[in-house]
């Protein structure tokens, strides 16, 4: 094996995950980009098209980690979905789908790869500001809260060999958020003290910071422009 640094990034085909992967490539990582979509062909990543809610999808990622040249330094659990509704209107399949992708896949992939990560490596989980509570997102909020608990538990279990942290982004300028109607998005931005949406590379910068922050483990960094303080 070479001394090459490998990173696995899930949800890497677009949005925040794509930017995280691009930034890691730019800093010398070989990135195994994982996504359920086929858009990975357009990236500089070593692509694995996989559904991480299935055993086959998890197998595909761990097999690629086993065979690629280099050492696994970083796992970024970024993939996530939303199925928003007030709880009173939330169907069970909407609840389950979000739990399976946003929490189940994070737990199962981290469990699969934890022993492959080199000493000094780390896991960065993508939580969300919604873990502090967000109207119409019982499922999403629960899943991201679960990610915070998973981060704490794995940080204790894997220390001192591997660190585990989480990032809780607020409203970030991605294809998904730009799909929000202008008037609604405008009100959301008005509530952000920094007066703008976050940029994907600001989340990627936080991933890079945590990847190198050798004395931080088990914590959540909220990257939301101050939104968790404002009305």
């Amino acid at each position: 094996m070479s001394e090459g640094r490998i990173a696995v990034v899930t949800g890497a085909a677009r949005g925040i995950g794509r930017t995280i992967g691009d930034c890691l490539v730019a800093t010398g990582y070989t990135v195994i980009g994982v996504d359920v979509s086929d858009q990975l062909a357009e990236t500089d990543f070593d692509p694995v098209q996989a559904d991480l809610t299935t055993d086959g999808g998890l197998d595909a990622v761990s097999e690629r980690v086993d065979t690629i040249d280099g050492n696994l330094h970083l796992l970024v659990n970024n993939a996530g979905i939303t199925r928003d509704a007030r709880l009173v209107n939330m169907a069970r399949d909407e609840f389950t789908a979000v739990l399976e992708v946003n929490l189940g896949a994070v737990f199962r992939l981290s469990t699969r790869l934890r022993d492959d990560i080199v000493t000094g490596g780390s896991i960065v989980n993508m939580a969300s500001r919604a873990y502090l509570g967000n109207f119409g997102q019982f499922n999403y909020s629960m899943s991201k809260g679960g990610v915070v608990g998973l981060t704490r538990a794995m940080a204790l279990e894997l220390a001192p060999r591997v660190r585990v942290n989480a990032i809780a982004p607020g409203l970030i300028a991605t294809e998904m958020s730009m799909g929000i109607p202008d008037d609604i998005r405008g009100k959301m931005v008005d509530a952000i003290p920094m007066g703008r949406m976050g940029e994907p590379d600001e989340i990627a910068d936080t991933v890079l910071f945590l990847a190198g922050a050798g004395y931080i483990t088990g914590h959540v960094i909220v990257v939301d422009g101050g939104r968790s303080l404002s009305r």
Partner: peptide, 16 residues
């Protein structure tokens, strides 16, 4: 991890 995911998941769900 299992107990942690449940407890923190419930806390976030309660806030929402």
């Amino acid at each position: 991890a299992g107990a942690a995911m449940v407890a923190t998941g419930l806390l976030s769900a309660a806030r929402t």
